[in-house]
Design a protein around this nucleic acid. Structure first.
Lengths: 123, 123
DNA sequence: CTGAAACTTAACCATAAAGTTAAGTTATCG
DNA sequence: CGATAACTTAACTTTATGGTTAAGTTTCAG
């Protein structure tokens, strides 16, 4: 049963690994529903190429498509992202740990400023 | 400049889209450091195959490898996941919204139970 | 009923991914 | 120095990705 979830995660992460597809999703984040041609319009690539990306997205469950007449409405379905977030959340402690350490260091310096280390510096 | 981040996200999501690689990372989540052969041991595939996965992970910056004598220590570096989390976080409202709506619905029913709708139901 | 708009399918190509086996490298041990 | 352990590289195969152009479908407008 955990195998199915694995495959879903595979599809989700894989779908998200392409910048065109992330841009498509980002577009749908602000628009409720867009047709295939509206989605395709900003991209330099051909319509069929965009279609393939939409296929990947809908196979991953990240969009739904409904045909009305000759136009197809695409809308976002973020649900599969929740599982991806959960997977990543397991590792969150590693960077919060790091940030905590940084914060501690900064607090320490604020309390007891070391000489010759003030001013501007990029990290 | 945002292009570089895009490529990093590509690599991160792509690296995470394979179950073997996620298993390798999960292993390193609990172990601080493991050698290549220790990491490879649980898998049915050949050593070179695991090597390639490790190459992908380190190219994505998700692990670091340090050679000591003839053994190579791999350790987790979760930092790139933070960016992936941030990207996903933009969409978090979509499922929390959904959960909020569900919760509201349940509260409403608890207050004012509709007749003929009790019991078990799918979806 | 013709034609254009909005997709969809098909056929093809180049490159990358994921695996294999076989043949190197380096280290460490006896 | 020779053998073995721990990787690494090379060469190859198969399948998947991401793109193309060309040729269908439907559906709506005139």
């Amino acid at each position: 049963m955990v195998k199915f979830q694995q495959a879903q995660l595979d599809r989700t992460f894989s779908a998200l690994s392409d910048p065109t597809r992330r841009a498509l999703l980002a577009r749908l984040e602000g628009e409720e529903a867009l047709s295939v041609s509206e989605l395709a319009q900003p991209f330099a690539m051909s319509l069929p190429a965009v279609m393939k990306h939409l296929d990947v997205l809908s196979h991953a469950g990240l969009i739904t498509r409904t045909k009305t007449g000759r136009t197809v409405s695409c809308r976002l379905n973020a649900d599969p992202m929740e599982e991806a977030m959960s997977w990543l959340a397991r590792y969150q402690r590693f960077w919060t740990q790091r940030l905590d350490a940084l914060e501690a260091l900064l607090n320490e310096r604020r309390r007891d400023p070391a000489p010759g280390e003030g001013g501007s510096g990029g990290a």
